[in-house]
Design a protein around this nucleic acid. Sequence first.
DNA 1: CATGAATGAGCCTTCATTCAT
DNA 2: CATGAATGAAGGCTCATTCAT
Lengths: 217, 217, 217, 217
Amino acid sequence: MDAVTVEQRAERSRDRVSRRRVDKFADRRAQLANSALLTLSELGYARTSLREIAQNSEFSHGVLHYYFTDKVDLIMHCVKQYKAECVRRYDEIVGTSLTPDDLKHGFATGLATTMCEDASMHRLWYDLRSQSLFEESFRADVGEIDRSLERMIWRIVSRYAELADASPTVTSPVAYAMFDGMFQHGLAKFIGGDATAGLELTANVEHVLGSLVFHNG
Amino acid sequence: MDAVTVEQRAERSRDRVSRRRVDKFADRRAQLANSALLTLSELGYARTSLREIAQNSEFSHGVLHYYFTDKVDLIMHCVKQYKAECVRRYDEIVGTSLTPDDLKHGFATGLATTMCEDASMHRLWYDLRSQSLFEESFRADVGEIDRSLERMIWRIVSRYAELADASPTVTSPVAYAMFDGMFQHGLAKFIGGDATAGLELTANVEHVLGSLVFHNG
Amino acid sequence: MDAVTVEQRAERSRDRVSRRRVDKFADRRAQLANSALLTLSELGYARTSLREIAQNSEFSHGVLHYYFTDKVDLIMHCVKQYKAECVRRYDEIVGTSLTPDDLKHGFATGLATTMCEDASMHRLWYDLRSQSLFEESFRADVGEIDRSLERMIWRIVSRYAELADASPTVTSPVAYAMFDGMFQHGLAKFIGGDATAGLELTANVEHVLGSLVFHNG
Amino acid sequence: MDAVTVEQRAERSRDRVSRRRVDKFADRRAQLANSALLTLSELGYARTSLREIAQNSEFSHGVLHYYFTDKVDLIMHCVKQYKAECVRRYDEIVGTSLTPDDLKHGFATGLATTMCEDASMHRLWYDLRSQSLFEESFRADVGEIDRSLERMIWRIVSRYAELADASPTVTSPVAYAMFDGMFQHGLAKFIGGDATAGLELTANVEHVLGSLVFHNG
DNA sequence: CATGAATGAGCCTTCATTCAT
DNA sequence: CATGAATGAAGGCTCATTCAT
């Protein structure tokens, strides 16, 4: 790590002076994180070693320690990066749906699609979230991601209610818990080899979203 | 093991001849599993070593390998044992509740109580379930436990509907996914230090159970 | 082992008083050794544990320690028992062959047959003999077996010379070394899956035995 | 390993680019193998642990795993390295002998010398070859070494026949089996403490080599 | 006599981390 | 900046042996 720690580098990012250096640093982190995501999502947190990550990338083993303080730093960066992209995609659905059914269907389909296509990524998230129940140091970041997901779900539900001239019958945490529960169980089914898991999730999500609002008037 | 493998012992359990011997063996397994549960639930699957488990018990390191074929065998036994007890407790609530509100309240309170009191155990279960998304070898047992929990939830919902002269509006998998989702999020909150998590779960579960049935007539 | 050690039991075998007890003891040893031979010849000395031996027999793990002082004691008993039987069989060939060609062919065929049929036993012997190069304690017994084999080979060679009215051109140790070398290489070939190893050994042994004597007159 | 596996390194050796790096890696392997050979030849394959090897060297325990994939990889490298050197030495004798007697004596003396001086190394080879009768995974490498030895012996025999204007009376495999048999028995004698084993081997080898060819014309 | 429960040393291997270059 | 060599603690597991019953 030389005379400069990772923390010091992070701090530097606020200086304008070393802006170019920082960008390069951040870029490198993103690049490494992206590469690591492949291995991580394939093996899970506990079973993945930094060596393995390096081996499956074009980078050396030492460079990981150079850009990340430790394994936790790395994996958190990975998952945050990924989940941010997820949220962005759902919000796009919210933004482009004009009728309640469009939204309902778009949301349900979106969930089911990513569940199947990015199954490995999602299981990594659940793995990480489970670890956070044991490891204090994971909690802040996991909690933050969790809240961003809850807000995303709530934007779906509220917008759906709005489009349908209705009101939600549950609170935001409950809505998130429900959809998250269904997603997680669908994922387990899918990973277990059940090819119908996607369609089933679509149907369930549509049904539940529909019944989660009470029509006004 | 000695002249017989662990598997052979299991088979023997059907013989009456060696019944006493088998009981002793099973008792010891239960005893060890119980002891292991303490460490396991404190550290999680990946961070717990068999040596650690042994050290926190009154047994030697070798005895664990004597009674369990490997780490997976041990942890699965632990969790199965624990979850079987859980299911039993919920079924007792079903059996003794005379009115829908009794059941609803009993169930909600039961969930919240165990969530807080046995938080460590529950996080171990979620840890294990997450691992099963990566480790093929975990899936059979985890799946079996999952199904037993789903059936338990469905007994609650059906009985509630029956007592309330109503019909469920969701399928069994969806019902389980919902309650499991809420439980899991409540657990994270509780472990994160939120003392209101229990009460919140009670309220949420009551609300959702109530809205999961459609009154006949 | 109680108050009586295995050694004391062996000594007792010279007393007539406890003759019946001793016979039973020796019988048990033979029985156990025979059973152990199966596992031992399948896995080799180093890879075989006493547990494994017990598991593949009808005996308990503890009984092995009761009848044999240790692993070495057991394996030596096994191999001695087996090799004594081998020697007896070859001597039968010597005794019943009336012409030099009978003997030559009988010997060559006998070697090839046991090489293929009892391949596992023979590799155990070579394993043990290799171990004796490292382990002082093996040497006495291995040496004794080796000498008995050499004497057996020499009976073959001498008798062959006699029947052919010829004289051996090599000494006893050299003759043994040669046939042993060919047997060992044939065995490796056979175990490596070469089905022609048997026939090849027959031919080679016949050729070499024939050229090992110088015709008188 | 680091970002590359041991296998990948081996592949790299064909690139010129990373030639120096590879050489360093190969050098280290050779160095470690050489060091390991001391312990290995003293204790034998099964009784030698990697820890023991490391302790008897100037390296740490982990470094062995860094340079070799596993114990088998290590020991095979050791023995191959050693046996290649052996073959080279015999070929030198073939190359410099001008008369049949020179060759015969040079070969016989060479065998006897290495038998005594490198007794420990040779017993390791026989140990390994015995193990290969049980362990499939050893066979390829052991077989390869065996064939290289057979070819070496055959070069001796053919050259001897050539120099003596004679023809071999046995095939290559038989010749190898004979000399190998004599060497092995001589080694056992020597290790058993018989100081005359060397001279005896010399005499036997000379005698047998002489009688293995048929003079032309 | 015989059993099999229990022990604890020891084995191979993996890994995060450090450090010289 | 980056590399990859080296470390040593720790993990899962096996095993000969001991011992109470």
